[in-house]
Design a protein around this nucleic acid. Structure first.
Length: 288
DNA sequence: TAAGATAAGAGGGACAT
DNA sequence: ATGTCAGTCTTATCTTA
């Protein structure tokens, strides 16, 4: 199903290309849309490319120049002794600036792990950058001391996903990272607390359309669910409950009302909650 | 086979010690 | 810091239609 191009939809915000039928992310290789050049004159002419984009996911931000170990100049002549010594010093600093410092080595480890996660979780480049940014800030604030690189990295991934509204559940990330769900969660809370991340609340309306689209429900059902959800939000019945669970419940009710036959199981698994939770929410709603 | 019911357990927030 | 408590959600299992 996912091999057909016409099923592919592009999510520009999260930078994913996904199959509209099954939601499989087939590619996260959307090119950066912004210009990769800088111009300093007012007419905007004279643009020139400035090399590969610098990226946060390399420990040195993608700068590629290194000082080689050949003691020869560009035309192949042997360097004089004084120049030789000077380059030796430069080499030392060059080396130190690249990987010597503990921080940089740590970043190297984290980012190579991040590269592996990218495939496992289908992360977009935008999410990768965000993750790297968050991780760097965590390191700058010395939040990594005493915690594992992996758990902080996992938490950073989760934060990036939340911030870019490309939902991956804590459980998804825990599975992909070999970090326990609770550890991811704990680290995530620390990140939010210490870095003052402003993470958008999960919008139940978005949950509704996500689930409804995933199941191929009718517009009518979807609209009805959204109306119901509006009421619930206003009556504050939804407060403190999982947004996904509320969305799933409301959708289930709309399905029943419209004669669309979807099982609780189907809706629950699409929403990433259990049937029991849906039933609990249904009970709540009945008693109001 | 789907839906409903029930029980046990995990994990986190609030609050007190 | 540690413990307790109420409330939420999950997992598992059994019953009902």
């Amino acid at each position: 199903m996912c091999g057909k191009n016409q099923d592919l939809v592009t999510d520009l915000e999260s930078g994913e290309i996904a199959c509209s039928k099954c939601g499989l992310v087939t590619s996260d290789k959307i090119q950066e849309l912004g210009p990769e050049w800088r111009t300093f004159d007012s007419e905007g002419s004279g643009r020139s490319r400035v090399g590969s984009p610098s990226t946060l996911t390399f420990h040195d931000m993608g700068l590629a120049t290194i000082i080689g170990k050949e003691n020869r100049d560009s035309s192949g002549r042997q360097l004089e002794a004084s120049a030789n010594a000077r380059f030796q010093r430069l080499r030392t600093w060059d080396f130190r600036s690249q990987a010597q410092s503990l921080n940089h080595r740590n970043l190297l480890r984290a980012f190579s792990e991040l590269g592996r996660l990218k495939d496992k979780l289908g992360l977009s480049d935008a999410i990768m950058e965000k993750t790297a940014y968050v991780y760097r800030k965590a390191q700058d604030k010395h939040l990594i001391r005493g915690r594992s690189t992996s758990s902080i990295l996992a938490a950073a991934v989760y934060a990036a996903c939340r911030e870019l509204e490309a939902p991956r559940s804590l459980t998804d990330i825990a599975k992909a990272t070999d970090v326990k769900r609770t550890d991811v969660s704990r680290s995530y809370r620390i990140l939010v607390l210490e870095l003052g991340l402003k993470v958008p609340l999960i919008d139940p309306m978005k949950c509704i359309s996500k689930i409804a689209n995933g199941l191929g429900l009718s517009e009518k059902t979807k609209r009805m669910a959204i109306l119901t959800m509006n009421e619930l939000v206003q009556k504050k019945i939804s407060a403190g409950k999982l947004p996904m669970a509320m969305a799933a419940t409301v959708l289930y009710m709309s399905c029943v009302a419209n004669g669309e036959t979807k099982t609780q199981k189907a809706i629950a698994s699409m929403a990433g909650v259990t049937e029991v939770t849906i039933r609990n929410r249904l009970n709540d709603l009945e008693h109001r």
